[in-house]
Amino acid sequence: MPLTFTLDPTVTPALRDGVLGLWADVSNAGGAVGFVPPVTREEIRPELVKHLAAMAEGRHRLLVGCDETGEVAATAFFSFNTHRLMTHWVWLYTVMVHPRHQGRGYGRDLLAAAADAARGFDGIDAIRLTCRGGLGLERFYGSCGYKEVGRVPAAIRVAPGDDRDDITLLLPLA
């Protein structure tokens, strides 16, 4: 059953809790979304609050994918540039698919929905995102049309002695 994607959903307590739960579950399954396991919802909450505040200020937008039961199963946050020379592209952050839904093509569906949404934003020509090296994520994003445009070796310290590359990818929308 495909996910149903909504751009800019109304932020209700259920949606907030759903995103928070997704973020914790993805992180604890080893997903590269800003935390390393084990992590609690309470440790993630301040980061979610930052995203929600940026949404309220119009600096971020949220794309949510819900499963057939209405539960939050996937997310991606768009972040708009404020620098006058970079307003033609957006960042895509916190790209997640719940572990129980992985392997069904929902990650590709999420990225396609994100590209479709970004094409509807005024003056946006491309999407940039970063990913953590060492997990093969750049191959997945590459298979979805993203091109690697930069890499900073050992920029992400997952744990003492475990440094990963910070990889920047770009998807032109034209």
Rank of each mutant, 00 (worst) to 15 (best):
R16I: 09
L62D: 00
P37R: 12
L129T: 03
T6F: 06
D67V: 08
G123N: 08
C131P: 01
G142A: 03
F80E: 09
G21N: 09
R104L: 13
R128W: 15
A117N: 02
A117S: 02
L92P: 02
Q102V: 10
K147H: 15
L137H: 06
L135I: 13
E47G: 12
A74D: 01
E47D: 11
T6K: 03
F77D: 03
G58F: 07
V90C: 02
A29T: 08
A115E: 09
M55N: 10
T82G: 13
A24L: 04
I127R: 02
D8E: 12
L62I: 04
V64A: 01
G103Q: 06
F140L: 15
C66K: 15
F78P: 01
W89E: 10
T10Y: 08
Y93N: 11
Y146E: 09
G150C: 06
E148Q: 15
P38A: 07
G103E: 02
D25H: 14
A54E: 11
T6V: 11
L135V: 14
A32N: 10
W91D: 14
F80W: 07
Y146G: 06
P46D: 03
I127H: 03
C131D: 05
M55E: 12
A56K: 13
V26S: 12
T10W: 12
G133L: 03
D8S: 12
F35W: 06
M55C: 14
A76F: 00
V72C: 00
A113L: 06
Y146D: 00
H83K: 14
